[in-house]
Amino acid sequence: MKKRIIPAVLSVVLLLAALMLVQAVLIPSRYDNREGHLLCGYYGVSDKHDVIFVGDCEIYEGIVPAVLYEKFGMTSYVRGSSQQTVWQSYHVLEETLAKDPDVKVVVFNVLALKYGKTPTESISRMTLEDMQWSASKLQAIRASMTEDESFLSYFMPILRYHDRWSELTAADLAHTFRKHEDITHQGYLMQTDIVPVDPADTRKPDMLINTVLPARSMEYLAKMQDLCAQYGAELVLVKAPTNSVKYYWYEEWDAQIADYAAANNLTYYNFIGMDAELGLDWSTDTYDAGLHLNVYGAEKWTLYLGNLLVTNHGVQDRRGDAALDALWAERIARYTQEKQQGVQTK
């Protein structure tokens, strides 16, 4: 019996080791994708925050925590990722509040409410794989899985990425065991390019088919509200300023959210069309022709929203705390330096 057990056990160990090694190579390192690792930076910070921003690209490219601290003494973090759905935002917020239970205000960008199901498997995986293992992550996976996905493939990513063997490059190998570098500024992803809105572009948004936002996303919005209430945090809904027919925020949806906010005693700020108040100039404040804000636009929106958070929601000024000031000074310096240098996006 012994002569069979030892070889069997060793073969299994060898098989597992080989699979782990190959898996490490095959999992996309996303080293060339600036949006590849936006969530993981949070696990490395230990300070507390008064405000948490959750949402998708509009929030992680629109809100600058460094500016919020510099101007208002507000401690904040952006927990957003590409195409982050509302159920992903919910579970990301769940793990955030578990770690950071004294948060005063949670700001959620409502664009993702338009998705009733996970729009893109690969992008959804980018979010999920960037989360640390926890009960929240497991639930986020369950909520996000597309029809043909297997739950097991999140534990054994080789089942998902095995067919990448034929497209591996030397760069993939080089990045296999490299730790992901946090390129965000407290969750904010800086964009310094300027690609103005084309005034000659007369395209109209696609005709709205579903005038009502999906029930599933509204259900998760309600859960998010309950979660905030559980931690004594106030939920604030926002719609980031944009100027593009792509990812258009329709009036019908806006009205539905406004009604929902009123019915649930929530605050809802829609910044679309508030260019004058915000001081936005779509010829300089966007890096992709009005779809997202660049750093110049983001600073303007951040200042405006920061002012609202202080005035209407009583967020405290934490400046004067030596430890915090020192910590944020370092962050502000890094932010300022990168802004001055400009971001290499290509």
């Binding site: 069979r4 070889p7 069997a8 060793l10 073969s11 299994v12 060898l14 098989l15 080989a18 699979l19 190959v22 095959l26 498997e121 043909d148 996905e149 297997s150 493939s153 080789i158 089942l159 998902r160 095995h162 067919d163 063997w165």
Partner: peptide, 19 residues
Amino acid sequence: SLAFAVVVFLVLVFGTYGL
């Protein structure tokens, strides 16, 4: 034992399955 491990490895890595 080694043959079994090798076959399983080849199937998992080079197999046409998944999404």
